[in-house]
């Protein structure tokens, strides 16, 4: 991945979102997502154990942490893809703890996946159309009668083409998604999520496996989401990206939130440095044998950048 990924436009940082000290679990002025006492264990290993967490509205929040910190697990829990052992959380004031994933998505909280889930044997256009909400023709009985859904379908197609044009995928609209490159699939997945006009977009490692040539436009797209009034929560390893576009950073380690705050402040936090350096190598066996080294690299990168 390129080390010089910088958004084309200088991002406008949102500041002053929190109330009081920027400590783990601090209150936000206008939280969109509020998490309380969520825990999840896998065979004795506590993957997630979050006491209290608030995600600010209208901002880009990064969720970072070393491998195995429980970031993706927390993502899965918050989006209904996994069930917690304990805990509850609210989205826009509505309790959605334990709610099925599809209902969470319908409420306006959509996610993407670390390993892109472009639907390979559907065309790019079909992928997009699948994202649209409340489609009449998705009911089996109405599906038989095209006149009921044709108009809505045409409307959705216009919207999809518009989004595809923005993501520079409009020329590919009739190709199978399987024929796209890794980066294009990431873009498609994001564009597809936008078809439902979400209020909170949750991106799981949006930069992973993306060709450097495309990272630029991906960053711009994420910033655009904020500009259009959406809130963004993303998991990322790339510190440059985090620092450049995130308004707020939440750091997890061993399932807990160990720090949060402004990106530049957080990077200097001792707890964060400990979390990255103090990780036991052997515990991670099986996930990524090079994790330790990578993390050391990440910290170095961080410190270099600060100078």
């Amino acid at each position: 991945m390129s080390n010089n990924t910088v958004p084309t436009a200088k991002p406008v940082k949102t500041v002053g979102m929190h109330i009081g000290e920027a400590v783990p679990g601090c209150k936000k002025k206008d939280p969109i997502l509020v998490v309380d006492g969520v825990s999840r264990t896998f065979g004795g290993l506590k993957a997630v154990d979050v006491e209290h967490l608030e995600i600010p509205r209208g901002a880009i929040t990064a969720l970072i942490g070393p491998n195995g910190a429980g970031k993706t697990t927390l993502f899965n829990l918050l989006t209904g893809f996994d069930k917690p052992d304990t805990g509850s959380w609210t989205f826009e004031g509505t309790s959605i703890g334990g709610m099925a994933a599809f209902k969470v998505a319908r409420m306006g909280q959509v996610r993407t996946f670390q390993l892109t889930k472009a639907l390979g044997l559907l065309t790019v256009m079909d992928n997009m159309l699948l994202g649209a909400k409340a489609q009449v023709g998705e009911n089996l009985f109405r599906a038989v009668l095209p006149f009921l859904w044709r108009q809505q379908e045409a409307h959705n197609k216009v919207k999809a083409l518009d989004l595809l044009a923005r993501f520079k995928l409009d020329t590919k609209k009739d190709d199978y998604a399987a024929s796209l490159s890794g980066g294009q699939r990431k873009l498609l997945e994001m564009a597809r999520a936008l078809m439902s006009d979400p209020t909170l977009v949750m991106l799981d490692e949006p930069m992973a496996g993306v060709n450097p040539a495309l990272t630029q436009s991906l960053l711009d797209h994420i910033l655009n989401l904020k500009a259009e009034g959406m809130s963004v929560l993303f998991v990322e390893h790339d510190m440059h990206m985090v620092r450049h576009i995130a308004d707020w950073v939440i750091v997890m380690a061993e399932g807990k939130v160990v720090a949060e705050g402004d990106p530049h402040e957080v990077m200097r936090n001792q707890a964060v440095i400990d979390a990255y350096l103090g990780q036991h190598h052997d515990e991670d066996l099986g996930e990524d044998p090079d994790a330790g080294q990578q993390n050391v690299g990440a910290i170095k990168e961080l410190l270099d950048d600060e100078l």
């Binding site: 896998f42 697990t73 899965n76 996994d82 670390q114």
Partner: peptide, 11 residues
Amino acid sequence: QGILGRKERIG
């Protein structure tokens, strides 16, 4: 997951 099987980790 079966009687002796382990629960699969999702995600």
